Simulated scan of single mutants.
Amino acid sequence: MNTSFIKYHSHLLTILFFTLGAVITCTFNLGDLKPSSEFDYLDALGEGGMTLMTLVWIGFILISRPAGKVTNWLFSGLILMNISMLLDFIDEFVIYPQNSAWLTAIESLPAPVGMVIMSIALYHWYQEQMTINAQLRRTERFYRDHSLTDFITGLYSAKYMKKQIKHQLLYSKKTKQPFTMMMIDIRQFDQFNRQYGHQQGDILLREIGQVITMNIRDQDLACRYASDRFVVLLPNTTTTFAETFAWHIENSLANLAFKVGSDQQANYQKITLCSKEFDGSQSDYQVLELMSQQMDSTKKQNNKHHNKQVA
C-alpha cells in the first residue's frame, strides 16, 4: 500500500489525535463508569464498529489523497461523524450526572453537520474527478495520435509509413498511377554519436527531419525509418519528377551547418539518397526491401567512386 501522501497531513493527524483524546478525556472526567451488569455489549459492538470504520475511512483519505480543500472537507465531515459515534459508544459504558447531561443531548449533533460537509466534499470530489478524467482523455488522445510519430524528429513513424504504403499500393494498382519512394541515409552517424553524444545526435536528427519536411509537398509523407535513415513517400510521382525533390533535399542538407552546443565550428553532414518508382504490383514488404537493397547498392557505388578519387 502506497502511503506517500500521509506525510502531507501531519496537521490533520494532530487534529485527529487531539480530538479523540479530548472527547475520551472529557467524557470519562465528567461521567462515571457503569456497573458491568448494565453494559449492553451488542449495542457497544455495533456502535464501536461504526466508530472504528469512520477512523478507517479517515485513514484511507489521508493515505490516498494529496493535501487540499477537498481532502480537508472530507476529513472534517468524517471526524464530526466520528465524534458522534464515539460519544454513542462511550455512553454504553459511562453514566453522566445531571449537570453533565448536556453531553447526551448534543452527542448526535456533530453527525448531521458532518454529513452535510461530507456531501459538499463528495460533490467537489466528483468535480475534481471529472476534471482529471477530461485531462486523461486529452492525454490519451495526444498519445494515441502521436503514437504515429517519431518522438525525436516529429516525423511519422515507420509503423505508420508501412500502413500508408499499403494504402498507396492499392491506390496505384487501381488508378494505374505510379508513386516513388525516396530513402535518405546519414553517413557516419554512429561516429557523430560517439564523438558528440546521443543527445546531440537526436538534435541533429530533428533538424534533418525539418529540412526534409521543408523540401517536400503537403501530400508527401516523410518518416524516420531507422536510427539514421529516413523514407519519403511521393504519391502520383515518377522517378524523374522525384529527382527534383532529391536535388533540393541533398543541397539543403549539404548546407545544414550544425553546431554542437557552444562550438562555433559547424558540422556538415553527408547523406546517401536513392529513389525508386513503384506501380502497385508489389507488397509493402517488397517495397521497403527493394528500397533497402537500392540504398546498399548506392552506398557501394559511392564508396567505389570515393576510393577511385583517393587513389
Rank of each mutant, 00 (worst) to 15 (best):
L256F: 07
L221W: 08
M161N: 03
N267F: 14
I184P: 07
I249M: 02
S227N: 15
Q219C: 09
T272L: 04
I186V: 15
R217K: 10
S227I: 11
T272Q: 08
Q264F: 05
A222Q: 07
C223L: 01
H198N: 03
N267R: 15
T237N: 03
I212F: 05
S252N: 14
A222F: 05
K166C: 10
S172W: 03
M214K: 12
Q168N: 08
L253F: 09
F192N: 04
Q210E: 15
M182D: 02
Q195P: 02
M295R: 15
R229K: 14
Y171V: 11
E207A: 08
A254L: 13
G201R: 06
K163R: 12
D202E: 07
I212C: 02
S283A: 02
L273V: 07
S252F: 02
R224H: 02
I203T: 15
Q199S: 10
R229Q: 15
T298Y: 06
N255W: 07
A246R: 15
V260Y: 13
D185N: 14
Q282F: 05
R229W: 00
Q199L: 11
Q200H: 12
Q210G: 12
Q164V: 03
R229S: 07
T237E: 04
T239R: 12
K166P: 00
V232L: 00
D296E: 13
P235S: 02
T244A: 07
P178N: 04
G280V: 04
S172N: 06
F258K: 10
A246T: 04
K163L: 14
T240D: 15
Q282S: 11
M181K: 02
M214F: 05
K173A: 10
L253R: 05
Q164H: 13
A266D: 10
C274A: 12
L170E: 12
F189R: 02
F230I: 06
R194V: 00
N255P: 07
L221G: 05
R194C: 00
V211S: 04
R194S: 09
S275D: 11
C223W: 03
S227P: 08
G197Q: 02
A254R: 09
Y285H: 08
N236V: 12
Q265W: 02
G201F: 00
N236Q: 13
I186N: 02
D284S: 13
Q210M: 14
S172T: 06
Y171S: 14
V260E: 07
D228Y: 03
S292W: 05
F179I: 07
V231Q: 10
D284T: 08
V287H: 04
G197E: 01
Q219W: 09
N267I: 11
Q191M: 05
Q188R: 14
Q191C: 05
G280P: 00
M214A: 15
G209Y: 03
K176G: 00
S292V: 08
D220P: 05
G280C: 02
N215V: 02
L170P: 03
T239H: 13
G209S: 00
D279V: 07
R229L: 11
D220E: 14
T239W: 06
N251V: 00
F278G: 06
R229N: 11
A242D: 02
V231G: 04
Q164P: 03
E277G: 05
G209F: 01
Y225K: 04
Q191Y: 05
V211E: 13
I249Q: 03
D185I: 06
A257Y: 05
L205P: 03
K174G: 10
H248F: 06
Q177S: 09
I216N: 00
D185R: 11
T272Y: 08
T298H: 06
D279E: 09
Q191P: 01
